[in-house]
């Protein structure tokens, strides 16, 4: 399996590594990291900067007896393995499992256009994450975005503006981007998309679809 060619912007990896990124965007980044060694190394580097910083901070003394109190709370020996997680969803990266429990097919998909289904998996005050399932060979109506959107391929792929996006690849669209992605003619496409503002569709079909896509 090859590594993705299209990565999240550096400042997103930085926000993930430092701990300031919201849940929906973190879901996309953690899922990408599962599929991308290059970005795993980047995040490890950012965390190493965090370690250096922590080590160099001027210490702030803790309250009297803090160590003794903590010592009484050390119950049992340290764990040897990771605590049991949510049930695995075969074929999907682990960060997604708690959000798609029961599997991809069991999600409450909603049809939002011919050959296009979507379901929201994480919503926060800053951004929302949804899964998009597109049948083979479907062209998504030309649309723009009020804010930013990042779309990552989980299965199949899509092509947009002469570029091909495969598993793990992220297409970043800003407010200025008008695009018209087409799903893979054989496999279609399963994507995770994170939007930090409502979609704005352009064109006639776009205007018709707008009430569906712009939830």
């Amino acid at each position: 399996m090859t590594c993705p060619s299209y990565h999240p912007p550096d400042e997103m990896l930085m926000a993930y590594g430092t701990g300031s990124l919201d849940e929906a965007s973190s879901l996309l980044i953690a899922t990408h990291l599962t599929l991308c060694r290059r970005c795993r190394i980047e995040v490890e580097r950012i965390e190493a900067m965090g370690g250096g910083l922590l080590d160099s901070l001027a210490p702030e003394s803790l309250s009297e007896g803090a160590l003794a109190r903590v010592m009484t709370r050390l119950d049992g020996p340290p764990a040897r393995s990771r605590p049991p997680q949510t049930a695995a969803v075969a074929g999907m990266p682990a960060p997604l499992w708690p959000y798609i429990a029961g599997g991809v097919d069991a999600l409450p998909w909603r049809r939002v256009g011919p050959g296009i289904q979507q379901v929201f998996v994480a919503s926060g005050p800053i951004a929302r994450a949804r899964m998009l399932r597109v049948a083979p060979g479907v062209v998504i109506p030309q649309h723009g975005h009020a804010a930013g959107e990042m779309t990552m391929v989980l299965r199949g792929g899509f092509a947009d503006a002469g570029q091909t996006f495969e598993i793990g690849d992220i297409e970043v669209a800003g407010p200025e981007t008008i695009h018209r992605p087409a799903s893979d003619p054989e496999e279609g496409c399963l994507c995770l998309a994170v939007t930090d503002g409502p979609l704005r569709l352009t064109g006639l079909l776009g205007r018709l679809l707008n009430p569906f896509l712009d939830l």
Partner: peptide, 26 residues
Amino acid sequence: ARNLRLDRLRKERRPCLDPDDPMLIG
């Protein structure tokens, strides 16, 4: 420390990479 703060103060889940994930590429 970073993850604990997000857990406690934001009351959000923190999606994390699992280094033993069978889906891991590379």
